[in-house]
Nucleic acid binder design. Structure first.
Lengths: 331, 331
DNA sequence: ATTCGGAGTGTAAGCGCTTACACTTAATGT
DNA sequence: ACATTAAGTGTAAGCGCTTACACTCCGAAT
């Protein structure tokens, strides 16, 4: 059943059928009704490939993230998909993995699809050196690339970032104000946002004349047990508070603290990041920095729509984080 | 830059270029190398729409779930996407919401895309009456539909289910064996798998001569605080154990129990469902039924590939659950 | 009465690819 | 030496749609 069949059945030309499908104002209401009836009666759906060929677009975006199983990314993807619907866009999801090679391979796959724009969720897609940049620039040559929490210079590349630096700077200060001096920093990776957080931590310490102790900066795998076990393996590690780059890391720290029989926040304060479901699941409930995925995603969507609509768009936008105070801190 | 340009530059016909793109054995290696070189030099990517038009497929599947922000579904989607990659399939993700109307609308959107098969994650896509069936059958007329945790009769519809009935039956028995008699059952919905779980609970009680107390069957929203608060609102609710249809509900129960100052599992045992990250995040760590998303998804993928490969496939397959024993039960 | 213009519709030329079929070589068998 | 075949390549006809352009009406303007 194709456009010719419908045209024949409705007694019109294919051009008219096409116009009805696209709700062109050039067709009289009477004709529209007639054609629509025939389409409905025959369960006709226009062939998307053919439309894509003719129109040059199938109204599809790509969303890439290292892994949707990660709560944070799942939230982002969920928000993006649900809100892109309203604009008539569908989303192809790519889980690229964390591995450089896999990420590149994912990009190859994406290039083969005819996508209108690409959204990359996660600071894992930030690169400093030109060689690393390479593959993303290849993509950007063909379609606009939007980085959420990632940052990269380049034409056709746009980033929306949380102000992680400031958020960690501020919370570090708060910990200092409540008398904490040995603040353990748990990072999840060497990604852009992880680095921003770390710099926020270091800057605040320096600002207040506290030397940065490298032993207090750890990089466990981003999982609860992995973090707990790594901490348990450390010999003679003393700290009176923890800032973690994700809630998983923070909960891992809580598990460690519990294993050592210490009190939270009495002996050790803990601050998590992302304000995920984990932060209200654990005991005591976790003070966590909310980097507001929804706002990040909303901003990104607005930019995409503006760009696809022909407007020009800011290449870099920043969103403030919020500190959500719960029971693992005494401020 | 299209196939004609490449053909001209390589000094061959477009048929040959096409054959090279599709790695046809009918082209000599020498010609392949030459054409590939030209393609590479010019950064040529075949137009996916045109290929789709010609081939009748773009190797794309649809994945629908109510909401990827839900950890359980995020895990499923993640597994599906990562493993479908290897077969050369990309996935369009649809978050349908829980609302009937929204689900229907999602299906409309899906029908407009040219997809090879549809995977629906979640028992929310189960229907008993023919009228409700309607819209899913419409889809199934056009492409094969695979339900993960859903169940529906119909041609071109395939379901892969966890044996939730047996899992809950068994764990209910275990609770009875350890002397529990007032088992609170927390359900998340009236979906198919939720019903299976409930029937498992009721059957086990009946089997052991314990009357089913309807007051002990509750349906909170599937969120931690919502569950806790609902329990706090109940007057004179006594129970010595909890079986929850999700980990969120179970953690909500834990929060309630803590708020009431009771001990787990001493005074109250708790069993969750899905064995998600939450179950190792909370305190004490949660005994949870693992319905093995990976196995469900793996089974589904195998079925899809078999079907698309032309084989016939079982319309209904069942996967056994595993009980993961942690600290909220004393068995 | 005649011209003009706009509304509605049809014709046909793409869009960029796949592939059946035809064709050209060159190798093989007799 | 000639028929036969296989391997490699080209030609052209789709695939199902969009849309520029042409055309036909018919009412309004002259």
């Amino acid at each position: 059943m194709n456009i010719y069949d419908i045209a024949k059945l409705a007694g019109v030309s294919i051009a008219t059928v096409s116009r009805v499908v696209n709700d062109s104002p050039k067709v009289s209401e009477r004709t529209k009704d007639k054609v629509r009836q025939v389409m409905e009666d025959n369960g006709y759906t226009p062939n998307a490939f053919a439309r894509g060929l003719g129109l040059g677009s199938m109204n599809t975006l790509g969303i890439v993230c290292p892994d949707v199983a990660d709560i944070y990314m799942a939230n982002a993807v969920s928000y993006l998909e649900k809100n892109l619907q309203g604009y008539g866009y569908d989303c192809i999801l790519y889980c690229s993995g964390y591995d450089e090679e896999d990420k590149q391979q994912t990009v190859e796959r994406i290039l083969k699809k005819q996508i209108d724009a690409l959204i990359m969720v996660g600071s894992e897609y930030t690169y400093d050196t030109p060689e690393q940049n390479g593959y993303l620039h290849n993509v950007a040559e063909k379609l606009p690339v939007f980085l959420i929490n990632g940052s990269m210079e380049g034409s056709n590349i746009y980033s929306v970032l949380a102000d992680d630096f400031q958020a960690v700077y501020d919370v570090t200060e708060e910990l200092l104000f409540t008398g904490r001096r040995e603040i353990l920093f748990l990072s999840n990776a060497h990604s852009y946002s992880a680095m921003s957080k770390l710099r926020g931590y270091e800057s605040a310490l320096k600002e207040h004349g506290i030397p940065v102790n490298q032993k207090l900066i750890l990089y466990p795998d981003n999982a609860i047990y992995a973090t707990r076990d790594m901490l348990l393996r450390q010999r003679s590690l003393n700290f009176d508070s923890v800032i973690a780059a994700t809630d998983e890391l923070a909960v891992g720290a809580l598990k460690y603290i519990r294993a050592r029989g210490m009190r939270v926040p009495g002996e050790i304060s803990v601050v998590g990041y992302n304000n995920s479901e984990l932060s209200i699941c654990c005991e005591p409930e976790l003070t966590s920095i909310d980097n507001r995925v929804e706002v990040l995603c909303k901003t990104t969507i607005d930019s995409i729509m503006a760009l696809l609509g022909g407007s020009t768009v800011k290449q870099k936008q920043m969103v403030k984080c919020h500190l959500i105070r719960r029971s693992t801190t005494d401020f």
